[in-house]
Computed example of a mutant assay.
Amino acid sequence: MPLGTLDRTPPPFFKQGPSALSKLMFFSALALFLMVADLRFKITQPIRAAVATALYPVQWLALQPVRAVQHGGGYFTALSQARASEEEAHKKLAFQSLRASQVEQLAQENSRLRKLLGLREQLAISGVAAQVLYDAPDPYTRKVIIDRGLVQGVELGSPVLDEFGVLGQVTRVHPLVSEVTLVIDRELAIPVLNTRTGERSVAFGEPSAYGGGLELRFMGSNSDVQKDDLLTTSGVDGVYPSGLPVAKVDRIERRAESAFARIYCTPQAKVNAAVHVMVVKPVSGGELPPPAAEPVGPITKGGRK
């Protein structure tokens, strides 16, 4: 048989369906459609919650060797360091005992003054203790994952604290775990109050400053801000309780060509080493009393009757 008459096409038995180019175009269009649908309609949120719930036991098992190594290293801590820590703890305990003896008297005076001035009582803070499991895998954000979720009563937007100050805010909640955006993330902003001057401002996350910090923006170049000024939550946003430590002013740059100063701050919380945290319910989550109703009546020329 001449070679020119041979059929060089594969038999039908070995045909694999559509071509590779057709498959590439189809799956590319499907991926683009799913990304747009997820962005607009959040269709993958239940899937994320289910996957996070299913992977939680695997994450827990994977973290056990790391915790075992950490606990083993802590067990072999030098005795001198342990004694130094004990002495420091005794000093702090004595100082706290001295201050605690004055708390009850100050609380009573505060309550009497508020009643005298007709001010409402401060809101009680309630929260849930949690532990940081690991950092979020996204390298472009500063987030951590904690071991409390919807089952434990964690709400979206809840402030998260450590023993030193505000650590961040809950930005995603799953049934068993939650995602916390740290205060140094560029997408987080906190209304703050300068305890020395009483001036309010907003602190924005600045992850590129000294490995992670905050920045006071839109502050005039002649504003009364000094190094080591303590910034606390102002409470005007209805999310963070007032008076929580947020940061200290670290560096101030005043430029003649700019009307605003560049003010960099260091967070009070241990954003890179937090282990045990407290998740506090948002102030606006049903705890704020309703505003007083205005008197209703016909309006006259001189005002309301």
Rank of each mutant, 00 (worst) to 15 (best):
F76L: 13
T77S: 11
A78R: 11
A78K: 09
L79Y: 07
L79T: 13
S80K: 14
S80H: 13
Q81V: 10
Q81G: 10
Q81I: 09
Q81D: 15
A82I: 15
A82G: 10
S85K: 11
S85P: 00
S85A: 15
E86I: 07
E86S: 09
E88K: 11
E88P: 00
A89N: 07
H90L: 13
H90E: 14
H90V: 10
K91V: 10
K91Y: 06
L93Q: 07
L93R: 07
A94Y: 02
F95D: 11
F95I: 08
Q96N: 14
Q96W: 12
S97R: 09
R99Y: 11
R99V: 10
A100L: 12
S101L: 13
S101H: 07
S101R: 10
V103Y: 07
V103K: 05
E104D: 09
E104T: 08
L106A: 12
E109D: 13
S111F: 07
R112L: 14
R114H: 11
R114T: 05
L116R: 11
L117D: 05
L119S: 06
R120K: 12
R120W: 01
R120E: 15
R120C: 02
E121A: 14
L123A: 13
A124D: 15
I125A: 09
I125R: 15
S126K: 13
S126R: 14
S126C: 06
S126Q: 13
S126T: 15
G127N: 03
G127C: 04
G127D: 03
A129C: 00
A129G: 04
Q131V: 08
Q131R: 09
Q131G: 06
Y134K: 02
Y134S: 03
D135H: 05
P137W: 01
D138H: 00
T141I: 03
R142F: 00
R142A: 04
R142Q: 08
I146W: 01
D147E: 03
D147V: 01
D147C: 01
D147I: 02
G149R: 01
L150K: 13
V151F: 08
Q152C: 01
L156K: 13
L156P: 04
G157Y: 05
G157Q: 05
G157L: 06
S158L: 04
S158I: 05
S158G: 06
V160A: 03
L161K: 07
L161S: 01
D162N: 06
D162K: 09
F164W: 11
F164Y: 15
G165R: 05
G165Y: 02
V166S: 04
L167F: 05
G168V: 03
G168Q: 01
G168Y: 04
G168T: 03
Q169W: 03
Q169T: 12
Q169S: 12
V170D: 11
